[in-house]
């Protein structure tokens, strides 16, 4: 039992591997932000396509969203990393990480955005059309601004999800925090201790992110609405 408790004495491992851990963390955070950025934009476009597009477009968007959300992220990464090379497309682990996570993120963001779009009341459309606004104007200036505000809680939740799931980069070898951790552990054989350090780092980053997000959400609220 005493030996188990000493598993939590991690300071020296942390200090001696600080540079490598920080490098992994930097990759993780960069990956998260880039994926969120492109994934959200792409997701909004998908949601618009699904809600307003002509039948074939709407169907395609729906199929994309349901298929990606209905299959594991890891399977999607594997397809990109292990299946494509047979067709001559050989992406690096880093590229696979960026593309794969973005594709996944877009599907989820699309679903959240669609929910918000559908919650914009019919009276909003009625008013806009009565003023002589065309459909695209109504979508751009009346529906989207409201739908996006409604989506923000879900979007920020997604940020936390992506942050956590970037750890999957470990499995394909992209140099994120977990991969660096594996590298360290494979040399000092302190698997539990190293991964425990990683866990604490994730915990701290997630708590900080959540705190920042809450502050931002409060700032951008429409007075009295939502």
């Amino acid at each position: 039992m005493l030996e188990f408790l000493t598993e939590f004495m991690i300071i020296d491992i942390f200090v001696s591997n600080f540079a490598r851990l920080m490098s992994g963390l930097r990759f993780t955070i960069t990956l998260t932000f880039v994926v969120m950025f492109f994934g959200t934009i792409f997701g909004v476009l998908l949601a618009l396509g699904r809600s307003y597009g002509i039948k074939p477009v709407s169907w395609l968007c729906t199929a994309y969203i349901e298929l990606i959300r209905g299959t594991p992220m890891l399977a999607q990464l594997f397809i990109l990393y292990f299946a494509l090379p047979a067709y001559g497309i050989r992406f690096s682990a880093v590229t696979v990480a960026y593309i794969g996570f973005t594709i996944n993120c877009a599907a989820y963001q699309a679903e959240y955005t669609r929910g918000s779009i559908e919650s914009v009341g019919a009276d909003q459309y009625k008013s806009a059309y009565s003023l002589g606004m065309k459909r695209w104007q109504t979508i751009l200036f009346v529906v989207l601004p409201q739908a996006i505000r409604w989506s923000i809680p879900a979007w920020t939740n997604e940020f936390i999800y992506i942050l956590k799931y970037t750890s999957l980069a470990y499995i394909i070898g992209a140099p994120d925090l977990m991969t660096q951790g594996k590298f360290i552990a494979s040399r000092n054989y302190q698997f539990f201790r190293v991964y425990f350090i990683a866990a604490i780092i994730y915990l701290i980053i997630v708590l900080i992110s959540t705190w920042i997000i809450d502050k931002l959400e409060a700032k951008f609220k429409i007075p009295g609405f939502g």
């Binding site: 956590k164 470990y170 698997f191 539990f192 991964y195 990683a198 866990a199 994730y202 997630v206 708590l207």
Partner: peptide, 23 residues
């Protein structure tokens, strides 16, 4: 809840796998 919703699932799996041996 705060802890187990903030740690990535993968990390959790690895911790649970490598932890018990030292016990």
């Amino acid at each position: 809840e705060k802890i187990f919703r903030s740690i990535p699932e993968l990390v959790l799996l690895l911790l649970v796998f490598y932890g018990p041996p030292s016990l």
